[in-house]
Nucleic acid binder design. Structure first.
Lengths: 134, 134
DNA sequence: CGGGATCCCCCAGGATACTG
DNA sequence: CAGTATCCTGGGGGATCCCG
């Protein structure tokens, strides 16, 4: 490891890539679910509200590809497939939790800022709309 | 604040929303740049490689809306607009840095896992392709 | 049950041109 | 310089059907 800052552009691209995985619509939610323990496909489907089976498959494949979850197939009838976080996956979960806590803590402040901003934007529109019912 | 776990579904949606902001293609990069100090529009445009002026505008508006950056207009000619992180923005930056460090630390492990996974997938394809030149 | 294959829609986001 | 407005395309992602 080189000391000091880590400003190499190569790392930046990698970091951005990882971040996009975190920001993707489903990955984090799946990881959180798996944080509670090993889960089957349809168990995940039910607990991650709103996900389609297609996206669940793709999400799991992506996580498996990056070594964040393992996929275990039991060749029974009916088939059974278990997904489980790897050590890497667990460590990611821990890190992401930091972000989650930040979000919860600052939730209200963000919502307030948002409301103020939107009210200001509404004021601007008065000059464009007919200020009838004002 | 209720003690213990914070598993309320309402919070989940908020957290997901924040996460998507973090995972979005440009927000984090802009925030990182602003972490070095106040910047003008075109300064940002140059330092955030690949961003279009349209997306920079949209990204900055979003960040401003959430109270993460401030926008200061100097009505000079030519106009000058400075963007700067708020306290909220700084705290987000700090939290995101945790994720960035995770990404750097685990970069190689992920890349390795990815390579192994892709090789395995390539093996499967042999059964579907004509093993001619094999 | 746990997916793969297909179709299709929507919109994030790039390119370009214009304005104050 | 710092945007706004418009057009246009790629692919993210839902719905549906099928298969071992």
């Amino acid at each position: 490891m080189s000391p000091g800052h880590i400003h190499v552009p190569t790392d930046c691209r990698t970091v951005t890539e990882i971040l996009s995985r975190v920001g993707d619509k489903w990955s984090v939610q799946v990881v959180v679910q798996l944080g509670e323990g090993s889960r089957r496909f349809n168990e995940l489907r039910r607990s991650v509200t709103g996900i389609s089976q297609r996206m669940l498959t793709l999400t799991l494949r992506g996580l498996e590809r990056d070594g964040l979850v393992t996929r275990t197939v039991y060749p029974t009838i009916p088939p059974r497939v278990d997904y489980q976080l790897t050590g890497l996956g667990c460590s990611l979960l821990k890190t992401v939790r930091g972000l989650g806590e930040w979000a919860i803590v600052n939730r209200d402040e963000i919502l307030d800022a948002r409301r103020r901003f939107d009210e200001g934007a509404a004021d601007q529109e008065v000059h464009q709309q007919r200020p009838d019912a004002a």
